[in-house]
Write a protein that binds this DNA or RNA. Sequence first.
DNA 1: TTGTAAGCGTTATCAG
DNA 2: CTGATAACGCTTACAA
Lengths: 339, 339
Amino acid sequence: MSKLRSAPTLDDVAKRAGVSTATVSRCLNDPQRVVQATRDRVMEAVDALGYTPNFAARVMAAKRSFTIGAIIPTMENAIFARGLQAFQEEIHQRGYTLLVSSSAYKPEVEEEQIRTLVARGADGLLLIGHDRDPGICDYLARQKVPALVAWSYEAEERMPSIGFDNRQAMMALADQVIAFGHTRLAMISGLSEGNDRARLRIQGVRDAMAQNSLRPENLPVIETPYEIENGADAFRNLMTQDAPPTAILCGNDVLAVGAVRQAAQMGLRVPEDISITGFDDIELAKIVQPSLTTIHVPHRDMGRAAAVELVKMIETSSPGKSTRLDTGIVMRDSLARLI
Amino acid sequence: MSKLRSAPTLDDVAKRAGVSTATVSRCLNDPQRVVQATRDRVMEAVDALGYTPNFAARVMAAKRSFTIGAIIPTMENAIFARGLQAFQEEIHQRGYTLLVSSSAYKPEVEEEQIRTLVARGADGLLLIGHDRDPGICDYLARQKVPALVAWSYEAEERMPSIGFDNRQAMMALADQVIAFGHTRLAMISGLSEGNDRARLRIQGVRDAMAQNSLRPENLPVIETPYEIENGADAFRNLMTQDAPPTAILCGNDVLAVGAVRQAAQMGLRVPEDISITGFDDIELAKIVQPSLTTIHVPHRDMGRAAAVELVKMIETSSPGKSTRLDTGIVMRDSLARLI
DNA sequence: TTGTAAGCGTTATCAG
DNA sequence: CTGATAACGCTTACAA
């Protein structure tokens, strides 16, 4: 009948300390509610036995997991790494643990992950971007699991968000490009379906063109997954057509790096022969040659702010409030001034 | 008494389908054990109610979580990203979910994470490298939680491992460097304390020197955390001494990239004035100029193999067997031939 | 301040 | 093939 070297339980600790399980539980969760003497005895028992509370049991009883789930489109490239790290540090400080999973940019995978995380008792969820099936928002509302959107800011959306204005950021950059005398623009974008960031960035370029009397409908746009190779392919594609562009705006730094490399491969000088811009300002942007003119995104600030807000939503049952962070243009070497 | 729009439970489903909870449970876990007719009725109820099983309850009852935990030193740079992604894909295919956390290269954090993951009912653990307190291995053994080490191969260690021979890989590279005529070597390493990969890579360089009649004790080694900036600082340090080296071997690509950038900053040409090598062959290695001569590590294969092995350990209670993967030297542009 | 005992939502063992 | 029912380990009223 003896549990052969299995994990010690509350009961074991209670017995060894000569108290009830309730008291042990209190010692662990709210130490002030038990007198010093018993507390000492209990704690002694706890680490004599090497006791660790069983998480599943705790979640079931408390209906609270101190776990926050995050679903990001990808872990492979660095886009989300830094912000997530900051998010993690911040919630950890507040006593929460982070569960990360990646959806590979697939809506149906994201949905499955959301359900999994909720079933696992996540107290709150961090999601990327606003584009998703309303049904899943209903689900979250019904389950009363607070969710916060990051990497995108949109006050009018149903879920609160912490991020930046993707359209406006890209519009500012395109504006700059045009101010430098470029009139033949092109764009290498991420897949815009189900990805509001990608969609809004394209829109930003178009809006800048319209504002500057260029014809947005003439903007060549290639949509492709965010991979270096794809950026390279798209670049070749764009440059081998008649009247190639003088400036290519890329949906993110990864695509831009691919474009820069392909340019070198084709014997084109950047930015003398062709200007290329990025978005995100990840580490790569500084390292590639020439270094990338790009949009700086405050990854760490965003992660931290998201953490603070989400924890607040969880702990006060507040609906959550949206915050818009600023981005800025980082001028480096991949954009040429024509005039 | 009505549960106001709370998550539906097994009981709710059972009632709606007019069966017992046991039957519903069986429908979900082992459908063959219940006849088509009832199964249909149950399934209808399941998705009419939008039922998702409560994970904590399931874990408690089944003592099985279909969760695998992985603790990696860092998520910030790309070193582990690719391998982990492959690992995740592979276990997901086998019905497991991955829980990732990062230890920031701190042994005490890793230990805490291990305990947390075990408390959460992880069925198995993926750990990086062999260097850790034996106490924690005892703990894992006592809890009967299988653990597998990756990124390092060492048949003699207590835990089974899937990885490569860090010493030998680095030795081969150093050998090549020496064969190219370099005699004044230096090394920029990661912090070797608690990091067997770093330690063994240093050893590899020393062994190659000894084998080639150079004096290993003369090798200048700077140990520093794996960050680009640190690689740059170390490089400056090394190059501003008397009789600077002609080749610097870096503990990984991140440090090497820092060194390359600092070289440019100091007006030194790579590889004409100074040769620099990396380790890992992450994406960065191809992008930096000049591209990095480095050690290629089969990240994805390693991740996949680790997944297969760990799941096997979990499902068959086998002790696990170690596998050594091959690495290779990738010759690019950052290493010069002197003779 | 501490103890008792009723859940929490599953799975699994028996019977039927 | 299906139904009761006893765990699983913890939290939390409620009592003492």
